[in-house]
């Protein structure tokens, strides 16, 4: 019951947060100087008025806001000025599967590979392989996706011609590999560093000595006593990692010309397509809030100390 009320409480806060974001973003975009039709310099005032009427921009702002919220509750994010024949909701429905797939794949790879590298380095502490893995990780943290991706393209796409340079094609695995790797690499490096530090700290804890004194085989000491404790900092880093993958995906989708949300978002931002930008920000914010809630729940499940006293 405590868990349920915790989830409900967090969900209420999340909903409120999203409402605040919608409101702030809505008024920010509507009150801003310049609108989506500013690019066409010599727009006839009559045509302009017509366009504004089509998009409901001639109404008082309060009414526009109420309409937007009403439509939002029904799952309709309004029209897009960049793609006039399709609504924002439709565009999101198109882009979401692509973004979701590369995002989740990158996150899974980052966690698995990062933890494996960190554990490996910790178990080989102060040996040359440790220094090597951690050196690469230090570099990886400093390499943003927009630097990694072009180089990977050059190597695997152009010189070796193993993988497509860009595009989604039929959505087959070949088209995912480079975007997912570019997206995952900085997080792999960060998680590897974090895991190594946590492993070393845990290995020197008193309870590890107790476990060894019990005569447990080393494998069991590591798997049952060390890892669950060492994984906690990694779990709390997952929130920022998810945010990093989300933002990274905007850049990676741009580089590899993938038809995902990030690409629509950048197109929308360049064209001042407020409906599209607003819709995608709401979606990303909701996803991030939801995933952070899941991370918090996982943390509580892994660390009994946080469960009591709440």
């Amino acid at each position: 019951m405590r868990l349920l009320s915790f989830i409900l409480g967090r969900a209420a806060v999340a909903l409120l947060t999203i409402l605040v974001i919608v409101t702030a973003a809505f008024f920010l975009t509507r009150l801003a100087p310049g609108g989506p039709f500013d690019a066409e310099v010599d727009l006839d005032p009559l045509v302009r008025a017509n366009l504004e009427r089509t998009y409901g921009l001639d109404q008082p702002i309060g009414i526009q806001y109420r309409r937007y919220l009403g439509a939002l509750a029904a799952g309709d994010l309004g029209p897009s000025t960049t793609y006039p024949d399709r609504g924002v909701s439709e565009l999101i429905a198109d882009g979401l599967p692509v973004s979701l797939r590369i995002g989740l794949a990158a996150l899974a790879i980052a966690t698995a590979a990062g933890m494996a590298a960190g554990i490996f380095a910790a178990r080989n502490r102060n040996r040359p392989v440790d220094a090597l893995v951690m050196g690469v990780a230090s570099l990886g943290v400093a390499l943003p996706a927009f630097v990694v991706a072009p180089f990977l393209t050059l190597l695997f796409g152009i010189y070796l011609s193993w993988l497509p340079v860009a595009g989604w094609g039929d959505g087959s695995l070949r088209h995912w590999v480079l975007p997912v790797v570019s997206l995952a690499l900085p997080q792999v490096a960060a998680i590897a560093r974090l895991t190594r530090g946590a492993m070393l700290e845990t290995l020197s804890a008193d309870f590890v000595r107790t476990a060894r004194a019990k005569g447990l085989p080393e494998r069991r000491v590591i798997s049952a006593h060390v890892l669950p404790a060492a994984v906690l900092p990694v779990v709390s880093y997952l929130g920022p990692a998810i945010a990093g993958v989300l933002t990274g995906s905007v850049i990676v989708e741009q580089i590899f010309a993938l038809p995902g949300l990030g690409r629509f978002f950048v197109q929308g931002a360049i064209n001042r397509d407020y409906g599209l930008v607003l819709g995608i920000v709401i979606l990303y914010a909701s996803a991030l809030i939801l995933l952070n809630l899941l991370v918090d729940l996982a943390y509580g499940w892994l660390d009994p100390r946080t469960r009591t006293g709440r």
Binding site: L28, T29, L246, T247, A269, V281, Y284, A285
Partner: peptide
């Protein structure tokens, strides 16, 4: 806390979009 839960790059992009 509320701002923390937001994708910050997106906020910056919104700000830059709006204010040029």
């Amino acid at each position: 806390d509320v701002l923390y839960a937001l994708p910050l790059l997106f906020l910056i992009i919104v700000l830059v979009t709006v204010f040029g």
